[in-house]
């Protein structure tokens, strides 16, 4: 990565911190690393308002359910599938009021799936606190066939839609929740650079 050079569309994530000015709080975490991020959040001074935690454990690994039960004062919901967790989120939003603070810890796919759902309720992703945990795996949008390939760990990723070898750029679309993938050998067919794992 060139120093001093930054694609401004690439999101920046940071550790979760409670917002003390709020009407209510909603925490969504994914997998064992997300569970740990939630535990870390509960090490901080607890805010006054009601707190709901949605914990998704689909990927397996260390399970923090028991530990979270001890620290979450109001409402802990645990789901062993991504879809069920997203349904729980959908169910929570229609009655939610302004001042709801939303916190997310997990993979980029998890975060941006949530961002797309809450956008329908008028919440911008900029107003969601986001902590990247567990993996740097990317979702890649194929600019040629428009398919999105999830879980890309390498600099070059085969498109799940058209099979083209895509160079995974840093340019990120919040609307699609994906990085741009551009055919790597369009100018010189067959000339594929070395494939390396750079998003473990």
């Amino acid at each position: 990565m060139e120093r001093g050079y930054w694609i401004r569309s690439k999101p920046v994530y940071s550790a979760l911190v409670w917002q003390q000015q709020a009407n209510a709080h909603l925490v969504l975490v994914e997998g064992s690393a997300g569970g740990l991020a939630a535990m870390k959040l509960f090490q901080q001074m607890l805010p006054q308002q009601s707190i709901t935690v949605i914990y998704e454990t689909e990927a397996g690994g260390a399970d923090y359910t028991a530990a979270l039960k001890k620290v979450v004062p109001d409402d802990l919901q645990v789901f062993n599938s991504h879809d069920a967790a997203m349904k729980a989120l959908e169910a929570h939003l229609p009655e939610a009021l302004m001042g709801l603070r939303i916190y997310v810890a997990g993979s980029e796919k998890f975060m941006w799936d949530i961002a797309q759902i809450v956008l329908h309720y008028g919440v911008d992703d900029a107003d969601i606190a986001k902590e990247l945990t567990g993996t740097l795996a990317r979702s890649v949008y194929c600019v040629h066939c428009k398919a999105i390939t999830h879980n890309a760990h390498t600099n070059i990723q085969a498109c799940s839609g058209c099979g083209k070898k895509l160079f995974v750029r840093d340019h990120f679309s919040r609307r699609l929740g994906a990085y741009m993938g551009l055919m790597v050998d369009a100018e010189d067919p067959g000339q594929i650079p070395e494939i390396e794992e750079i998003y473990p």
Partner: peptide, 9 residues
């Protein structure tokens, strides 16, 4: 007034 407004107001 402000504490009872729906999300997205």
């Amino acid at each position: 007034l402000l504490s009872k407004q729906p999300l997205g107001t």
